[in-house]
Design a protein around this nucleic acid. Structure first.
Ligand SMILES: [Zn+2]
Ligand SMILES: [Zn+2]
Ligand SMILES: [Zn+2]
Ligand SMILES: [Zn+2]
Lengths: 146, 146
DNA sequence: TCATCTATGAGAATGAGTCACAATTTATGT
DNA sequence: ACATAAATTGTGACTCATTCTCATAGATGA
């Protein structure tokens, strides 16, 4: 279900329902996200897109990313490093991230126990959870010290 | 052990060992951190300090925060919102954060099971953990919807 | 006190991200 | 296809947090 065609359909439907326009720029940006590494930042995506379509502006890329995030096609992440990262979402299940501080590699994981414990912690403090993020920073197999 | 005197000693020792200067600016900034809310950002701290000591510059505050973080007197946090947050650290135990998206209130917590599970997850992927952060965003007691 | 060399203040520079606005495109009805 | 209205785009200016530059001030050790 995480293919370009489906995403494009989702986009088309959302735009129609909200009296917004389906533009080639939005289509191109969505397509290029599917050609791109699974975790990326806006600037790298813009450079990549610009190299193929030199009329598409930085602002349009940022605006599209914001839109796709709102629709739920992608998810904006806060992995540290001062730059927002994005990943395709669609109906992928929630997950958290292991990040190698040497090479930047990102590994995804889910742990149901951790998810459940978070609920319990929030309840204990009277809080209603909206979302959460767990980042584990370390050195990956290739870069750990022996 | 989390008092100003001890922190000042730590600072003095570090500076001496590294052929760096003990300055009144560094002392004042450290002192004001102890007069400040437990989670703060650089700009608010700067404004506060500036109101009492109008010669201290923004750059010096930022440089001191970087230094104190390196020494381990404070900890730089990434709670989202695009601005770095800081908290006193010294030898306080590790903890994570619940954050109210309405009022910004921050609640600290630790859960040993979650901590242990993270170790297991990292090992399963061959990663050596350096650190981690877990942020739970939600609505606090006062701001949750009934 | 003096010499040395680090730290500071001021403001310029950077970098990610946003905004304003004129020009362009899309969607819709004819 | 055409006209119209409204949304979108490209450009460049702008914001905001943070870092950098560099001349001057200040701390330290002899
Ligand atoms: Zn690595
Ligand atoms: Zn991911
Ligand atoms: Zn609240
Ligand atoms: Zn805290």
């Amino acid at each position: 279900m995480l293919d370009f065609k489906t995403a494009l359909e989702t986009l088309r439907n959302y735009l129609k329902e909200h009296e917004m326009r389906f533009t080639t720029e939005r289509m191109i940006i969505l397509e290029e996200i599917f050609n791109f590494p699974p975790h990326f930042d806006a600037e790298k995506l813009f450079i990549h897109i610009r190299s193929k379509y030199n009329h598409i502006s930085r602002a349009t890329v940022y605006r599209a990313l914001e839109l796709f995030d709102k629709i739920g096609i992608i998810k904006k992440l806060n992995l540290g490093g001062g730059v927002a990262q994005y990943e395709l979402k669609m109906d992928l299940p929630h997950h958290d991230h292991l990040i190698c501080v040497v090479c930047g590699k990102v590994i995804e994981f889910v742990d149901d126990t951790i998810e459940r414990l978070q609920q319990e912690i929030a309840e204990k403090h009277g809080m209603e959870i909206i979302n959460h993020q767990l980042q584990i920073y370390g050195r990956c197999k290739e870069h750990r010290k022996q």
